[in-house]
Write a protein that binds this DNA or RNA. Structure first.
Lengths: 235, 235
DNA sequence: ACGACTCCGAGAGCACTGCTCTTGACTTGT
DNA sequence: ACAAGTCAAGAGCAGTGCTCTCGGAGTCGT
């Protein structure tokens, strides 16, 4: 009974996976705009209505692809940031993220571009979306010595937001960073936005005609950001 | 004859404008995804095929809206950055850009989100797209004294790119910034990406659950970036 | 092993889209 | 006044997301 039930379930899971794969293939070629349920079904030799047994709507399919994309990028970043000195881990993570984005521009656009439909990024995505920022936070937590920052002091409200953020629980059940100095956390968010700002500009064509190709600019900025974070210089 | 020719032309120009206005209205409500030529035509009391006398395709209509959006945002930034000390102009320009983006999120997504169709951002858009960065560059050129920057040195290739960029001619016919130190220009590009990285994160929902609302984080970052640019502190 | 129940793919169909082409009326310039 | 140019309208094509119904197949308890 279990075997038979799982027989059906396995078939279902497999087909679900195949649908996503085919959808991802079409996404990589034509972009999210042109992805159509009918053509996915056609390519799989089935009829469009059958797809609705697996995904309730086109948006739901896209949401599934979004989660997969977040996870793929997050995994790359996690692997790249595994060992070594903080600055080296930072560099590698940045490059891993950029490499993934450049290799999968349409998937990148799916997750960091304009929200596709009537703006429905459900709760399911946040755990996957948090993986890259969590890599950064882990890296910051393990940075010693704690740097002394200059610059404008945190306002009370911002400090409160940051404190609450540090108390949040990550998907693994632990609090994110209750021990991280608020200044550091704030700078972490800054470099996080900077990293993805550069990627979006590069991939969405905003750099065409200025720093294009972007490789050297990117590397240089990564180093400046490492300084900004107070990561100890590489020896 | 001239009067009559312009009579027709004026009617044409007016209708073109009305089409864009209606399209912008629908854009503001439902987003670019849902904007349809047919519903624009319907709303204007005409038939869809008639629209094709004014815009050769849906993409061309969107391109027109993109240019208008760049111009609207650019104008806001230019007006905001008009007088005062560099740091004050910087602050005001940033807030002008953010205010415009928050007031017109779908138009913002149109220009800074994922490239919409088969990725066709024609040459016509660049002059309008350059207005905001040019505000920043003008501000940097008029900043005295020239700050002394620390940090990693520019690599040769990057320096070359920046030099070429400074020699480019702006839409008004002048070279952009042949006199600007390359270090300053580089930092200008960094803060430019940072600014729009923050805006995209805020508008596309990436900040939900962290620095949300984003006002204080934004203000604080703007100040940090002003320091990073070496803008003299406000007295 | 057989009926009950659930799941699944196929097909038809609705309302909608972008876009093309033709037709007939109107406005222009000579 | 007449030919040329311009325009809105209508029909039509190929495609879309999505719904509903139908018959067949798989699964389950008895």
């Amino acid at each position: 009974m279990n075997a038979s039930r799982t027989a059906r379930d396995r078939a279902r899971a497999e087909l679900t996976q195949e649908i996503k794969n085919e959808a991802r293939r079409q996404l990589a070629v034509d972009g999210a705009q042109k992805l159509s349920l009918r053509s996915v079904a056609r390519e799989l030799g089935m009829v469009s209505s059958a797809l609705y047994r697996y995904f309730a709507s086109r948006d739901e399919l896209l949401t599934a692809l979004i989660i997969d994309a977040y996870d793929a990028m997050g995994e790359q970043a996690e692997k790249a940031a595994e060992g070594g000195a903080p600055r080296e881990r930072w560099r590698k993570a940045c490059h891993a993220v950029r490499d993934w984005a450049r290799a999968n521009p349409h998937e990148y656009a799916l997750i960091y571009g304009s929200p596709i439909p009537g703006y429905a990024a459900p709760q399911d995505t946040v755990a996957s979306a948090a993986r890259v920022p969590l890599v950064l936070i882990r890296l910051l937590r393990e940075t010693n010595p704690v740097p002394a920052f200059e610059g404008p002091p945190l306002t009370d409200g911002l400090a409160g937001q940051l404190r609450a953020l540090g108390e949040l629980v990550a998907p693994d059940g632990e609090r994110i960073a209750p021990d991280l100095p608020l200044e550091t956390l704030n700078r972490g968010i800054v470099v996080w936005t900077q990293l993805f700002g550069m990627l979006s500009f590069e991939l969405f064509g905003q750099f065409v005609g200025s720093v294009d190709p972007t490789d050297e600019f990117f590397d240089h900025a990564i180093e400046q950001l490492a300084d900004f974070l107070g990561l100890p210089p590489a020896r």
